[in-house]
């Protein structure tokens, strides 16, 4: 039965396949080009991936195997010992993860809401001071963080924000780059959207909430992801403002942990894996939004 059903279709497809073949490597030069192209792509792909694969695999090795030369790629005797050690109650890893998670999700949520609001004003309203303020928004993206690091810390301190999750979230709850991305997206929507809504007598807030926001979900997703990534990976600010270990984020906690266990490589690798895994999962599901966000952020140069 299979043979009868398969044979006619293959007979039909065969000429097509032949045509495709003829269309692909037209001559030796084109074949060489394809080999070179895929060769380079594969080499750089491996170059990007191998340190992660090797490190992740090694986090399941015994310390002796991690140190062994010549190295093994996959663990000979897989063990969770490194993970058990870092999650043992004397290290505050569960605190660190929870703090990082709260910081990243709340910062992402606030960036989405507040940057959409600011982007709506910049992108769709004509108001006094608009060009100056938007220019300022672009300009501050170029201010090096080191210049304001110390005064920012002093300001946070005088607002009694230090050693507290609010110290992480409040200064980072609406980043200029988030506002820029939302503005660029909101600008592209057709004018008629609001005109029809205003004629209907809808208020501005309702127009914003019910008509505009649902149309910019891709931009909101990009802003959410960028903000989550920024907060999850943030190091210097939590290092400055958090003074007691139970308030450390994962990056800061990991660094102090590494300072104590500098040569226990399996522990460092397990810690790194815990830090990296959530972002890889997020990126895997939402990568096209990341790419679109960069496409817009890159427009800042023009």
């Amino acid at each position: 039965m299979t043979t009868t059903s398969v044979s006619p279709s293959t007979a039909e497809e065969r000429p097509q396949i032949a045509a495709n073949d003829r269309r692909q490597p037209r001559d030796n030069g084109e074949l060489l080009r394809a080999v070179l192209l895929y060769g380079l792509l594969t080499i750089y792909g491996v170059f990007s991936l191998i340190p992660f694969v090797y490190a992740f695999a090694s986090s399941f090795k015994t310390e002796a195997e991690v140190l062994h030369t010549p190295p093994t790629l996959l663990p000979l005797q897989p063990t969770l010992a490194a993970y058990q050690t870092i999650f043992s109650s004397s290290n505050n890893f569960t605190h660190y993860i929870l703090n990082s998670f709260i910081y990243a999700t709340v910062a992402a949520g606030l960036n989405v809401i507040l940057a959409s609001m600011a982007g709506y004003a910049f992108g769709r309203m004509e108001f006094w001071g608009k060009n100056a303020l938007f220019g300022l928004t672009l300009a501050v993206m170029m201010i090096p963080g080191q210049l304001i690091m110390i005064p920012k810390f002093l300001i946070a301190n005088s607002l009694h924000l230090t050693n507290n999750l609010a110290a992480l979230i409040i200064p980072n709850m609406v980043a200029p780059v988030s506002v820029f991305i939302m503005t660029q997206f909101l600008k592209t929507l057709p004018r008629e959207l609001e005109e029809s809504a205003v004629i209907d007598g809808a208020s501005r807030l309702r127009t914003f909430w019910q008509i505009i926001l649902p149309l910019v979900r891709p931009a909101m997703t990009a802003v959410a992801l960028f903000s989550f990534q920024g907060a999850w990976n943030d190091f210097i600010w939590p290092l400055l403002v958090m003074s007691s270990p139970q308030n450390y984020t994962l990056t800061v906690g990991l660094t102090f942990f590494a300072g104590v266990h500098y040569t226990e490589y399996s522990l460092l690798l397990a810690g790194a894996a815990v830090n990296i895994a959530p972002l890889v999962v997020l990126f895997f599901f939402f990568q096209r939004y990341f790419v679109r966000g960069f496409a817009t952020a890159g427009l800042a140069g023009r």
Binding site: Y38, G45, S48, L49, F52, V66, G271, A272, N275
Partner: peptide, 29 residues
Amino acid sequence: IRFKGIYRTLFYLPSLTSSVAISLIFIWL
């Protein structure tokens, strides 16, 4: 090219992860 998305994802991995985690891996490497 084929598999454009896969290559882009692979290439982007080092930029995605935190500098702290990458530094820990490279202390070892």
